[in-house]
Write a protein that binds this DNA or RNA. Structure first.
Lengths: 147, 147
DNA sequence: CTCTGTGCAAAGGATTTGCACTACG
DNA sequence: CGTAGTGCAAATCCTTTGCACAGAG
């Protein structure tokens, strides 16, 4: 799937869900698409500010909440002050978190579609995506004593 | 696996990792084991307070961080002020979150052990557990318009 | 034209920190 | 006994809220 297509899809999801497409929201979406990894809200606010001085802090938070509600974004929490956010490129995201140094390693995996379908039937829910997080110790940290 | 055994395992993990077993930590562990679902830090602080008036707020936060580092507990973030915590009974936890009403549905699943082993080999990491979160709309919310 | 979204500034909380004291091992 | 852990209270910082104005549809 093409990046621009994804971008367009997200914008049209905004529209079809009854929300408006504003400059602030477009800018924030662009910023999110440009940031790598799992940025904190503070990093996002900062990046948005650099992009467009006029966008207020509050709007960033409101927009992040909106994106989360639409399933475009997921909040995660990795110790240390504040939520972090992950864009869900194709509705899913997978990573390994180190409990010691808190680094994250992303990986691809698509073994969960079957389970997703089963759950939709069994629990009568409608799923948009998933977030899979393994935790443990990364290569370096697993070599330390006490681990 | 027996509940008491799990409790003992957690305590001995504290000891073997070079931490001390104190009254405060024992109380907080008991409280966590007694709470259902995905309590917020505020709920945990409150529950601890009811259990033992003398335990300070800061100690609760420090202990939660410690438990997270040991892999006993995982922080998650579900919109709406503050982290939530999930005990990892056997090192894993799975749930579905509704993006609209924010309810959660827990389910059992053990299809990830194979993937965990593969990742351990491929990424050279040492895994303790995992958290799998599906998101979408629950039965009631998926029937609403705009969904 | 109407109603949703925005920016600002201030309020409100939750979490963290520093320090003297306690108690685990 | 020594060091890790604790409780308290204050400081800090993130997030939310209220309101008048702007702009999308």
């Amino acid at each position: 799937m093409n990046i621009d297509t994804l971008h367009e899809q997200r914008l049209s999801l905004l529209r079809t869900s009854g929300n408006k497409i504003t400059d602030a929201r477009k800018t924030i979406l662009n910023v999110l698409e440009g940031l790598k990894g799992h940025p904190t809200s503070a990093q996002i606010v900062e990046a948005v500010r650099q992009h467009d001085q006029r966008i207020g802090r509050a709007s960033v938070f409101r927009t992040l909440d909106l994106f989360c509600q639409l399933g475009i974004l997921r909040p995660i929490y990795h110790e240390g002050g504040g939520a972090r956010y992950v864009l869900m490129p194709d509705g899913h995201h997978h990573h390994v978190v180190c409990l010691n140094c808190h680094c994250t390693i992303e990986f691809e995996d698509c073994a969960l579609d079957g389970l997703a379908h089963e759950l939709e039937t069994r629990l009568k829910v409608q799923l948009l995506g998933h977030l899979l997080e393994f935790y443990g110790y990364c290569e370096q940290c697993s070599l330390l004593p006490n681990k």
